[in-house]
Amino acid sequence: MMKWFGRKPSAESAKERLQLVLIHDRTALTPAEMTALKDELLAVISRHVEIDPDAVQIQLEHDGRTQRLLADIPLRSVSRRRAG
């Protein structure tokens, strides 16, 4: 099969695409529902602490046959908030 310069091997694309599809199949979460979940989660958290929405990372990952929702939510420091 043709290989283009800088192009990802097709097996790698297949694996990456399947990883996402299987997580959504297994959790019955569509990409749209996932976006809604992220937005709601951020809204709830921001009610209590100040966060930087652009630095937030929320994703589904799988390890064998278990799925987990991983959230990395950096908090803005309190001292800075008070000073400001």
Binding site: M1, K3, P9, S10, A11, E12, A14, K15, L18, Q19, L22, H62, D63, G64, R65
Partner: peptide, 20 residues
């Protein structure tokens, strides 16, 4: 042959995905 040229999922890839 396809697996070697990275144009087919390898057995390891399939196992990572399915986890059985």
């Amino acid at each position: 042959v396809l697996v070697k040229q990275h144009d087919m999922l390898s057995a390891n890839d399939v196992l990572d995905l399915l986890g059985i």
